[in-house]
């Protein structure tokens, strides 16, 4: 849950990138890490296996700067996508202020996306969080792949985005859509603070 320090005028929010295995969650963070100046970000912590699959989580803190007089920081986390890592996914999800659901646009990964989204809802529910109350945006990644391999944004919206929240087409490897996605979730999370969220 976001921490707000009124004395030091600081806000810290936790944003979790969720989605099926190999959908590009870590790639999103790596792109952000590469683009943000060193003075505005910390080390990227990756707890990964030898094959670079996320084992526990990736973590990247970034400093947005001053917003309404508050020094605002985001902690970006990814969860491991593979279904057998559900225990660690639940741990990372604890206290999240917002979720970016990174879907794999490839048609053959369609079911994996559905399964991961259901898993997100279950895990949130288990923590007593109604998914409808959680700021969330969708990112349809790998849209750069050949047309006949991927589903269009409209199709993915129809299948996954039943709440009709913001969604973004992306090619995280080359950075397209990464910034827009982060901007989208930032707005949602901070808007919740602007109308008065629960205390820290």
């Amino acid at each position: 849950m976001s921490l707000v320090n009124f004395t030091a005028r600081e806000i810290t929010c936790k944003i979790v990138y969720y989605g099926p295995g190999r959908s590009g969650k870590t790639t999103n963070l790596q792109y952000v890490f590469g683009r943000v100046p060193e003075t505005r970000r910390g080390r990227m912590v990756s707890l990964a296996t030898h094959g670079d699959r996320t084992l526990f989580f990736d973590f990247l803190p970034i400093e947005l700067g001053s917003i309404s007089g508050f020094t605002t920081r985001f902690q970006l986390y990814t969860v491991p996508g593979q279904s057998y890592y559900n225990a660690t996914r639940k741990l990372v999800l604890q206290g999240a202020d917002g979720v970016v659901f990174v879907a794999d646009s490839q048609a053959r990964r369609f079911d994996d996306n559905i399964e991961s989204l259901q898993n997100l809802q279950e895990n949130l529910l288990e923590q007593g969080v109604d998914v409808r109350q959680m700021p969330i945006v969708f990112q349809y990644n790998k849209q750069d792949l050949p047309r006949d391999l991927v589903l269009a944004r409209a199709d993915l919206d129809e299948a996954l985005n039943f709440r009709g929240v913001e969604s973004f087409a992306a090619d995280a490897l080359h950075g397209s859509g990464v910034f827009e996605t982060l901007k989208g979730i930032s707005e949602l999370v901070l808007r919740k603070l602007a109308v008065g969220g629960p205390a820290a």
Binding site: I11, R35, I62, L64, G65, I67, S186, L190, A194
Partner: peptide, 27 residues
């Protein structure tokens, strides 16, 4: 005891957020 929290940010924070993010990503 935990204090009740009212709105934290100004309503029109989006402008500052966008400027911050643009600066952050060098756009």
């Amino acid at each position: 005891p935990e204090e009740q929290r009212g709105p934290v940010l100004a309503e029109n924070f989006e402008h500052e957020l966008n400027a911050s993010l643009r600066a952050l990503f060098g756009r």
